[in-house]
């Protein structure tokens, strides 16, 4: 589904300042958008707003503008959580683990259970999703015994299992090592063309390797929104608040290769 924001602003309480302000952007169906910016730029707020959790959980908050997801237009934003059409993975993966299941397999199936998936179909989808994110070997483990990166993959598998039309990921590369990041790149690239992805990051690695749209935020204001070419061209402009240095050096290589390959990523991450 296509996502459109029109002059969207939000602040958490009537007397407070805007946390995001005047965001206007359009993300076509099936594309992948990176929301970039330093901590406190409003990235999480934006993802929460699209998911519906912001209006539902911050009742004192005040929004303006509109958010459209597919054919549905919400003014100023969806007022209830749009799961399973829209799936959001919070940055704190441990919060997303329900704790109602003792195995990773059960945990991945929890979301499917919640939307009333038939048992047999559920089992197939669980296995497929676990395979997709490479956690099949963890199937019988207790989710609370896993590392941060593994937990993040469990949450991702659980979200992918319900096949949301819009996938929102808050700082997905945060607790991942190079290998896991490479896997995330593969997963995001391998997603069905009908899935629209929006993820936030304060680093550039993942964004440059998978995103085709870029939104750059600073103090809630939109500094840039556009496709990859103009973004890479203007990279120096974001120097003050994005870690562009290491990328400025390798971008010529990237452009030459045109579509950066997974092996290149591993090598690049090793350079760091």
């Amino acid at each position: 589904m296509e996502i459109t924001l029109d002059r969207f602003s939000f602040h958490y309480a009537p007397s407070q300042q805007d946390v995001v302000s005047g965001i206007t952007m359009g993300i076509p169906k099936g594309s992948c958008c990176a929301v970039l910016g330093p901590t406190g730029a409003g990235k999480t707020t934006l993802l929460l707003a699209i998911s519906g959790a912001l209006a539902a959980h911050y009742s004192s908050g005040v929004g303006e503008g509109e958010i459209a997801i597919g054919p549905k237009v919400f003014r100023p934003m969806p007022d209830k959580i749009l799961f399973p059409e829209v799936g959001l993975a919070l940055q704190e993966s441990h919060l997303m683990i329900s704790g109602l299941h003792e195995t990773v397999r059960g945990e991945v199936g929890f979301s499917l259970e919640n939307i009333g998936t038939d048992t047999k179909v559920k089992e197939e989808k669980i296995v497929l999703a676990m395979e997709n994110v490479g956690i099949l070997h963890l199937a019988e483990r207790n989710p609370f015994m896993l590392s941060g990166g593994e937990l993040q993959r469990v949450v991702l598998a659980a979200l992918l299992a319900v096949q949301p039309a819009v996938l929102l990921l808050d700082e997905p590369s945060n607790s991942l090592d190079a290998e896991a990041t490479a896997m995330l790149v593969r997963i995001l690239r391998g997603l069905h063309k009908n899935t629209t992805v929006v993820f936030s990051d304060h680093q550039l690695d993942l964004a440059i390797l998978v995103a085709d749209r870029f939104l750059v935020l600073q103090d809630g204001e939109m500094v840039f929104f556009g496709e990859k070419k103009p973004f890479l061209k203007n990279l120096e402009q974001f120097k003050g608040f994005l870690p562009v240095d290491q990328w400025s050096k390798v971008i010529p290589q990237l452009s030459r290769k045109h579509a950066p390959h997974i092996r290149l990523l591993s090598r690049l991450l090793e350079i760091r």
Partner: peptide
């Protein structure tokens, strides 16, 4: 924490709400 208090409708009746 302020951000938490603003999640609840009773916040405006407390002195912490930053009115």
């Amino acid at each position: 924490p302020g951000r938490l208090v603003t999640r609840f409708p009773g916040a405006s009746h407390l002195s912490t709400s930053g009115e």
